[in-house]
């Protein structure tokens, strides 16, 4: 009997993406556990990870981390391929789209808070578009839009500030992480 061994060759970047995605998944579970008055409004804590990844490792890694988070989060919450999963996918895709542009804005003027606010608005925009087109094909869905907009602005600012704070604080520690990775 021959034993076949499949060995996946992973790079340091794969490890980094996996580690960051794990953090994002953990935060999205916390997100789902926080009770909020209106369905559809969530703090979106895992976006903090997306913002930090975007600032440090660029858009490509951020897209990977977000995609993994949406899929794995869907599995863990029992939402995979359910409407809620597609809603979070639509939100993630449209906010990644705007982040691709936002990351190109001059860094001197626009920081993580700008990214966060833009991403939050596009997140809810993508979700509303999908809900209108597919789940609730009636203009009634827009009735709640103002609440979503206010939530997007407030959580966008809060998450952006947290991400910016972590980025400033982590400037020194990043080098240390880099060294342990190299070892």
């Amino acid at each position: 009997m021959t034993r076949s061994v499949i060995r996946l060759v992973t790079t340091a970047e794969d490890h980094r993406i996996a580690r960051l995605a794990a953090a994002a998944i953990g935060l999205s579970l916390i997100d789902a556990a926080i009770p909020l008055p209106l369905p559809g409004i969530k703090p979106g804590l895992s976006n903090i990870v997306t913002l930090i990844v975007l600032a440090r490792h660029g858009w490509r890694v951020a897209a990977w981390v977000t995609g993994l988070r949406v899929v794995a989060g869907g599995i863990l919450l029992g939402q995979l391929l359910a409407p809620g999963f597609f809603m979070s996918l639509a939100g993630a895709l449209s906010s990644l789209l705007i982040l691709a542009g936002a990351a190109r804005l001059p860094k001197r003027w626009f920081g993580p808070v700008s990214w966060s606010i833009l991403a939050a608005f596009f997140h809810i925009g993508g979700q509303l578009a999908l809900a209108r087109a597919w789940l609730i094909p009636h203009d009634g869905v827009f009735y709640l839009a103002p609440f979503f907009a206010v939530a997007a602005l407030s959580f966008g600012i809060i998450n952006g500030l947290i991400a910016a704070g972590l980025l400033v604080r982590g400037q020194g520690s990043e080098d240390r992480v880099q060294k342990t990775e190299d070892r």
């Binding site: 700008s114 009735y143 907009a149 602005l153 966008g156």
Partner: peptide
């Protein structure tokens, strides 16, 4: 110190969008 000049601009635009969304949607 975490905010850059453009961040205020984006936040103000977001606030305007919020205010405008109420009459638009309702």
């Amino acid at each position: 110190s975490l905010l850059r000049p453009g961040d205020y601009l984006v936040a103000v635009c977001g606030a305007i969008l919020c205010v405008v969304s109420f009459p638009l949607a309702w």
